[in-house]
Design a protein around this nucleic acid. Structure first.
Lengths: 159, 159
DNA sequence: AGAATACCCACTTATTTACTTGGTAATAAA
DNA sequence: TTTATTACCAAGTAAATAAGTGGGTATTCT
């Protein structure tokens, strides 16, 4: 499981694409400007996204990028997987001794936690995010009563 | 939001601690051996965990580490926050022009997604993980027929 | 023809991971 | 009291990754 800023960049860019996508293709230059991501880095990210058919490029003047399929068919997990490798590394998989069971247990636990997060991210798609203008609306996601939500320095958000 | 292998190491080590914790303190050497993490790297991770009172060290022969509080009061988010910095960087926070709204919108969307993941990780504690030997059991998390996740209501899982 | 765009690749730099080395401090047991 | 065992500490190195640069080529619209 891996969820780094790289994946976040990709999600942010895809959100931008979804928001502006109705009016024809969106150029990387626009996204670069809007989101403050370097153009060439965006190109690299979009090369990944394109290879997974999450976006479709159109060359020439007036060109740019479309979503590769409807926004409600692109999950956050799709995007992060495309750029983030997401390698499920269990070192015990083959080479090392894992027959005592103890090590495998914690590994299994982590693996399941990992796939749990994956399923969660898979259950959210771009259309939902954009429709709601966020996640806060009823029915989808509720804030905790303690208001433990995003802040710039969130290290004190623990329960 | 950040969820790297560093946090995974910490969670794995804490799981190991929870599993073996009943029989007195657990040494870092044991965890290092069991989990295949270098001793000094573990020391660094545990320095972070200790500073947040997630673990308690006992020096001298027969020493080692205990959990800092009951396993059902330590969430996965607690652990990851302790070692992973978890800085919520929204560049638009102050300096750059963010009045056109477009950029802020995608940033807000991401921020809320980020805190959603945070809440999810906050809702899982070590005791649950160990009790169930995993997450798949009924009662905690149910899979929908389509494979997406369901929670009791909304997405704020009962912790 | 020329400009705008995607597309491509090889490189650099900065940051983070993961590990190493070489210690000091406390404490249980010999 | 000595010694071994552990936590604790700090300053590094090495490797991986993230992020950005610079130089192109290929399409396609005007």
């Amino acid at each position: 499981m891996r969820l780094s800023t790289k994946g976040r960049y990709a999600v942010t860019a895809m959100l931008d694409l979804t928001l502006q996508g109705g009016e024809g293709p969106v150029t990387l230059a626009e996204i670069s400007e809007t989101q403050g991501i370097s153009l060439s880095y965006l190109e690299q990210l979009f090369a990944c996204l394109r290879s997974k058919n999450l976006v479709r490029g159109v060359r020439g003047p007036g060109g740019g990028y479309y979503l590769g399929r409807p926004a409600d068919e692109i999950s956050i997990a799709d995007i992060i997987c495309a750029v983030d490798e997401w390698v499920e590394f269990t070192r015990c998989g083959g080479k090392r001794d894992c027959k005592d069971g103890k090590r495998c247990l914690t590994h299994n636990l982590w693996d399941e936690l990992s796939s749990e997060i994956f399923n969660f991210l898979s259950s959210i798609n771009l259309a939902e995010l954009v429709e709601r203008g966020g996640l806060k609306e009823e029915g989808c996601i509720k804030e905790k009563e303690n208001g433990a939500l995003t802040t710039e320095q969130g290290s004190t958000r623990a329960a």
